[in-house]
Design a protein around this nucleic acid. Structure first.
Lengths: 390, 390
DNA sequence: CCGCACCTGGACAACGTTGTCAGGTGTAGG
DNA sequence: CCTACACCTGACAACGTTGTCCAGGTGCGG
């Protein structure tokens, strides 16, 4: 962790000061509680009805401009039927008071919030960045705001977050499910909250889904390894609770079966993507007797792939690797990492388009959109089996 | 792009179907408009006062439970003064109707939204993932929801987004500024919207800032190259409009001056981080006569670094490189990329802590928190100058 | 058996905005 | 000069919730 922290009154810094000032002096402080600290404290002790800083309302603007309340509303919403002169007076009052419309009140009156919620599993996972961005772009094109949060793979937290968004009356939801039971969403969906699931299908309810072809992608990836002569191939994936994990495992088994290859007991490892676990699993299936040690590994997602790359980097003999999910710089490693790529941005864009089409009234039964994956050979998947080839 | 898309009624898929079904059949469709499509259309044509799906209100719950409105409110808010029996009746009615409190109305009444806004420049930039996540964790610990969006480095869009968040009456804002004039925020801040800037200071207003020591970090990074024998060092950075870009450039100049080294004209390139531009800039300063070609490059942020790594990977002679910002897999490249690391998560956590301390009533002048950077030698910065060493 | 204190439950107003509708002004035509 | 019409403008209610306040009921003691 980067520990040193310095604080100073901003006045001490007379602007970005282009002169090389005494920028070096710092005081060391506890990073875990940098500023005056706060965390534990109780809620702010201000008078219960603080009304923030007494923001001006339309009523205030109307009084100042000497017009009626509704006229201010008309100006603010660019409705027709206001004399230029009146409008000018109103605008002056708005600027003078620093008025900004209270969207909470507006929402309450109008019924729609022009905002959608996005719940994903980890905001810090690079896979979700482009997805997040794509959803935001679509939302923006529709004049909607995006509210998002991450479930940290915790079903309870997912539910908590989703229901909080519903309480905010988002118009629609895009959810990357962490749990496998979404019946709690039924009343919300019945009440008109459009919902699209991404990456994985909803559990125990019927709902729109946009996902990649995990099964086919994994099958193709494993077949690629088989085509390069491998017969003993390991699979390291995410927890079996997660739909994509089991789909990809299914693809692995299908590819092995297609080639008439047996799958030994120690070749499949499902579980958390924590680096320690993945590292242990990889090392276990790379060791063992010559008949059991794998000559190639298929990894179930980008987190797993990165960890396995680290494991392989420390070994003498190269071992073939194909990973599900592309990742930045995969092409610059030695060897480049062969991957089954899914397009996160398209996933997000497609889901958002579908969501807004529902919001615009598109009816019909829930649909399932499945996006093709793409095998990207870069070297690591083309390493032939060195030893143990029978 | 991954083009192939298939759609089918979800009913056709009798569950994750563990049997290897005909998952292969797909129809090719235009990815840019996948579902029934929507985009251009006008707003939904439903009756103006659709009230979504006529969600039940507290009034409905009260009627069904045979109690008063306020009693329902008491139950929902876990206030005291309700008989267990009454509470049970109310809860049954809530479950039966699928009632969920309308937070818009609640916000309107109470004045605080328990939500904060985060505006960053690119949701897809991996640098912001951990920052985003850290802010979310702090917000969650304070019972607040996080609303975020990205400005795409566009000052107008930043302002638009920030003001939209203010209209939603977020309690506080964390902003990574794209623009250099934030006076538009003055009325909002005066009205009580706590605001903390991250990564870069606010423009033309005084406000809290949490940022890394760009100047010192860049100076240390360039000094590292000088210590390894380089005398002709290039600098490729972001647009000069961006504060961190100029600070890092300042650090570069300081380090060069410290060592008494001149800076030739073609050695500094500021501008967009678009790969084409960076690539051109890098190639230009690597070519040229022996006296002018640089033997080392310092890159101003992670986007630039990645592009330069690509350029260097295609060259015969290794060229030394130190980059600002750490990035995943930097250690696994050949050679490992030496970086000046800043801790995005701490940046976010610190900013969020500061924000909530302001919301909890902490007064005082705006503060500036500066986090130390850390030089991480990995190889690329330790390459000695091959040619042209005088 | 009566009275008092306490406690539960409900009526009501208010938050800031927008839709409805009626009133008022100015202008043009008869 | 009066009527009619168009166009602005503003009063009012309602959105769903919470804070205030009061009424009614219960339990206990006198």
């Amino acid at each position: 962790m980067l520990g040193a922290v310095s604080r100073r009154d901003v006045r001490d810094t007379p602007r970005p000061a282009p002169t090389p000032t005494t920028e070096g002096q710092r005081t060391v402080a506890d990073t875990t509680a940098p500023p005056p600290s706060v965390s534990g404290g109780s809620r702010r002790p201000v008078p219960p009805q603080s009304r923030y800083g007494n923001r001006p309302t339309m009523k205030d603007v109307a009084a100042r401009a000497g017009v009626g309340l509704k006229t201010v509303s008309r100006v603010v919403n660019a409705e027709s039927g206001v004399t230029p002169d009146t409008e000018r007076r109103v605008r002056e009052a708005i600027d003078a008071l620093g008025f900004r419309r209270n969207d909470s009140a507006r929402v309450l009156r109008k019924g729609r919030t022009a905002s959608i919620g996005l719940v994903l599993e980890d905001l810090a996972d690079p896979f979700y960045g482009p997805l997040n961005r794509a959803v935001e772009e679509v939302a923006r094109a529709h004049g909607a705001l995006l509210i998002n949060g991450s479930s940290a793979e915790d079903p309870d937290r997912e539910q908590e977050l989703v229901l909080a968004l519903c309480a905010r009356r988002v118009d629609g939801l895009i959810v990357i499910p962490a749990g496998d039971d979404h019946r709690y969403l039924e009343p919300e969906m019945a009440a008109g909250v459009a919902t699209v699931f991404v990456d994985r299908p909803a559990g125990r309810i019927e709902a729109d889904v946009v996902r990649s072809d995990s099964f086919g992608g994994a099958r193709a990836g494993v077949a690629h390894l088989i085509a390069h002569g491998h017969r003993r191939i390991g699979f390291i994936g995410d927890q079996p609770r997660i739909h994509t994990a089991t789909e990809r495992l299914r693809g692995y088994h299908a590819a092995m079966a297609d080639a008439g290859l047996p799958v030994a007991e120690g070749w499949v490892a499902l579980g958390s993507t924590a680096p320690e676990r993945v590292r242990a699993a990889a090392e276990a299936m790379l060791e063992g007797t010559a008949d059991e040690a794998v000559t190639a590994v298929f990894t179930g997602n980008n987190r797993v792939t990165v960890t396995v790359v680290r494991v392989l980097a420390g070994r003498e003999h190269p071992v073939a690797l194909v990973g599900f999910d592309d990742f930045e710089l995969a092409d610059l490693l030695h060897p480049g990492v062969t991957v089954v790529a899914q397009d996160a941005a398209t996933l997000g864009r497609t889901a958002a388009d579908l969501l807004f089409s529902r919001l615009d009234g598109a009816g019909g039964a829930p649909v399932q959109v499945v996006l093709e994956t793409r095998l990207v050979p870069r070297g690591s998947g083309e390493i032939p089996p060195e030893r143990g080839r029978e």
